[in-house]
Design a protein around this nucleic acid. Structure first.
Length: 444
RNA sequence: GGAGACGUGGCCGAGAGGUCGAAGGCACUCCCCUGCUAAGGGAGCAUACGCGCUAAAACGCGUAUCGAGGGUUCGAAUCCCUCCGUCUCCGCCA
């Protein structure tokens, strides 16, 4: 069906995401830290596999060495015109054992890697231990939720009444979890993208990039969306060729820019900002956020990505999070910063801050950005390295964060900036992007 | 889409079944000489993994890797198959 595309190929090829040396030398410590995020390692299976691997690998390599030695002899003898039958017989005797050893070792390594591929990143020491969302810890709050003197409407109400939001058409065209926006709402949506990109490039030192929205499997493995989260992705079959996948986030194409690359030390830090649509099947989200634009199959996002030297990644994590917060502050949207607990973090993250914006209609804070430091976890898979001060290749650290999710930002603006007549006041920083318009979507 | 060529280390580039992990050049590091908007000489310089030795390195030995995967062979960068990618020409196209 996919021609010569073989899923098992990736199990072989991909290096595990945790440092294999660390696992071997400090299994206890690794197990303990993984346990804090609800991942239990089977010690006995691991050590048993590891023991067998050692002896088998040593034996295989020994046999290979013998074969190589004898083969060289054959070459030498032949060039002198001497008889090689004896050596040929000797090497033939090795063959059966060598082939068996190689096959077993291969099978073992496949099994080993399959286990390793399921291990998530180790959480940073500063991450609170917890089992789920309720254990996340609020770090800070910014802004004061506005007090309304009229009954607040949510964005769906506001948009549909004003004829700017049309879910019925979207459902007809595609289905549930899509939106059609019209007129000044569509323009506001576009304005937000421009505003975010301009701010990050002009004020925060990012370079804007444009990237493919259809990516291959290798890229999804590189950033950790595969193999575990295939059901969240939209897959695009291509006959016999390897399928494409629609990107779930710009993180995938942008971070994969440095896959298999050895960067010059001077190239770091690499700070990239990218606007893309994002596509998510939302397979596990049936029934959640079915109203409105909060959870869509297709949405726009401006993504911040940093590729940095390992010693700078924690500093960069704070900085990148501030860059995302700056957008909320310029828009004067109240928000809070949460640090995700061990049980709620993504697979590849060492630490994640979520930014949550105030939504007056829901009387709650909702996620609008997620900023993570992956340390070397992604880089190890990506084989993304730089030449360190000793001129040796060393894994980089990767980070990313939404700066911000555009659709949710639009929701936050219309809800927070709504007026009694259903119109929306445009935040000052956006007016230049709206042709100077101050209010939109009034009843007339 | 059709026809052809090609893919070798940080870069360029030899290599055509046997002491090839890979000549030579550039870049880089160290040393010597010299002396100042530079040149010459010498040495070193791929990555991953395993084993040994270490406090840890360095180091030593081994294995694998010449776009990727598989095959032929005692032995593959070299031969065969498949895939991926690049370039040239033709066709088509926003």
């Amino acid at each position: 069906m996919f021609g010569h595309f073989r899923p098992e190929f990736y199990v072989h090829r991909q290096t595990p995401m945790l440092d294999i040396q660390l696992l071997r030398s400090q299994l206890d410590r690794v197990a303990e830290r993984l346990a804090s995020r609800g991942k239990v390692i089977d010690f006995s299976e691991f050590t048993a596999l590891e023991t067998e691997r050692k002896t088998l690998q040593a034996r295989t390599q020994e046999l290979q060495s013998q074969r190589n030695l004898l083969s060289k002899q054959i070459g030498m003898l032949k060039s002198k015109g001497e008889d090689v039958a004896g050596v040929m017989a000797e090497v033939a005797a090795l063959k059966a054992e060598l082939e068996a050893a190689e096959a077993r070792l291969n099978a073992l390594l496949t099994q080993f890697n399959a286990i390793l591929a399921t291990l998530p990143n180790l959480p940073h020491e500063s991450v609170p231990v917890g089992s789920g969302e309720h254990d996340n810890v609020e770090i800070k709050r910014w802004g004061t939720p506005r007090v309304f003197e009229f009954a607040v409407r949510d964005h769906v109400d506001l948009g549909e009444r004003a004829g700017r939001l049309d879910f019925a058409s979207a459902a007809k065209i595609s289905g549930a979890r899509f939106a059609v926006m019209k007129g000044d709402w569509a323009r506001l949506h576009r304005a937000l993208i421009q505003f975010m990109l301009d701010t990050h490039t002009a004020e925060h030192g990012y370079t804007e990039v444009y990237v493919p929205y259809l990516v291959n499997r290798d890229s999804l493995f590189g950033t950790g969306q595969l193999p575990k989260f295939e059901e969240d992705l939209f897959k695009v079959p291509r006959g016999d060729a390897e399928p494409f996948y629609l990107i779930p986030t710009a993180e995938v194409p942008v971070t994969n820019i440095v896959r298999d690359a050895i960067l010059a030390a001077e190239a770091l830090p690499l700070k990239l900002v990218c606007h893309t649509p994002c596509f998510r099947s939302e397979a596990g989200a049936a029934g959640r956020d079915t109203r409105g634009m909060i959870r869509q199959h297709q949405f726009e996002k401006v993504e911040l990505v940093q590729i940095v030297r390992p010693e700078h990644s924690w500093e960069a994590h704070e900085e990148l999070t501030r860059h995302a917060e700056a957008i909320l502050e310029k828009l004067d949207l109240p928000y809070r910063r949460m640090v995700l607990c061990t049980g709620d973090m993504g697979f590849a993250a060492a630490k994640t801050y979520d930014l949550e914006v105030w939504l007056p209609a829901q009387q709650t804070y909702r996620e609008i950005s997620s900023c993570s430091n992956f340390e070397a976890f992604q880089a190890r898979r990506l084989q993304a390295r730089f030449r360190n001060d000793k001129q040796k290749p060393e894994l980089v650290h990767t980070l990313n964060g939404s700066g911000l999710a555009v659709g949710r930002t639009l929701v936050a603006i219309v809800e927070n900036y709504q007026n009694a007549d259903g119109s929306i006041t445009i935040p000052e920083v956006l007016r230049p992007y709206m042709g100077g318009v101050v209010r939109i979507a009034s009843a007339t």
